[in-house]
Amino acid sequence: MATLEIKNLHVSVQTEQGAKEILKGVDLTIRSGETHAVMGPNGSGKSTLAYSVAGHPKYEVTDGEILLDGESVLEMSVDERARAGLFLAMQYPVEIPGVSVSNFLRTAKTALTGEAPALRQWVGDLREGMKNLKMDSDFTERNVNEGFSGGEKKRHEILQLELLKPKIAILDETDSGLDVDALKIVSEGVNRAKASSDLGVLLITHYTRILRYIKPDFVHVFVAGKVAEQGGPELADRLEAEGYDRYLKASA
């Protein structure tokens, strides 16, 4: 049972004009087994929230706390956070020339568990994971994200989610750029990860489409660096019908 608590989180980035505050007091608590959808318009700070939890050096936490099972995540380096059980599926996964997917995944698994995975088991899990996500087996020999299509990058993120088995996963717009078939495949991957462990999920999205396949327990509307409203799945239906206009007017 894990709990990620985000309390009164304020985050700034450095710009040419000086520090710019993007997150303005975010409160969110995610527990194992729960699925939270964070929905908000472009530029509202959703990725900033995701990166701040993962510890990207670009984002400076100026106030507030992030706690994983009561321990401050802010004191941890990026890799320590991952080893503590946090996972971020990136909106824009990065290419790493010359590093093969198989080498990358094995290195990550070894780092997370502290020992090299038993070969036969690992090869089996990898093959199974790729088959489920309808990825060609030759992917393992390709360089990480190099020349991957948008959809392939997202499948690769979910493959990592399934293989690395975190406690809490943040999925940053994993649905964007996917056609309906790919969206289903990726959603099934997330649902499998939830079923096979007690994964807590923070699902960041712009659209309600993915919520047809991944059922949220809670929906948070994110506007101008804060949670503007929260509720159950019915809130998503309302957003579908009304859009973000109501919130944008209120925040303006």
Binding site: A54, G55, H56, P57, K58, S77, V78, D79, R81, A82, R83, F87, L88, M90, P93, V94, E95, I96, P97, G98, V99, N103, F104, T107, A108, A111, L112, N143, V144, Q160, L164
Partner: peptide, 30 residues
């Protein structure tokens, strides 16, 4: 070094020094 590459690797639990090694080896391996 590309900070984004290092961040991506570290976000998967790989230590900074190991991440740097991977990136350099990858850079030259081709």
């Amino acid at each position: 070094f590309d900070d984004e590459q290092l961040f991506y690797l570290q976000a998967r639990g790989i230590s900074e020094s190991e991440a740097r090694r991977l990136v350099v080896r990858g850079f030259l391996s081709e």
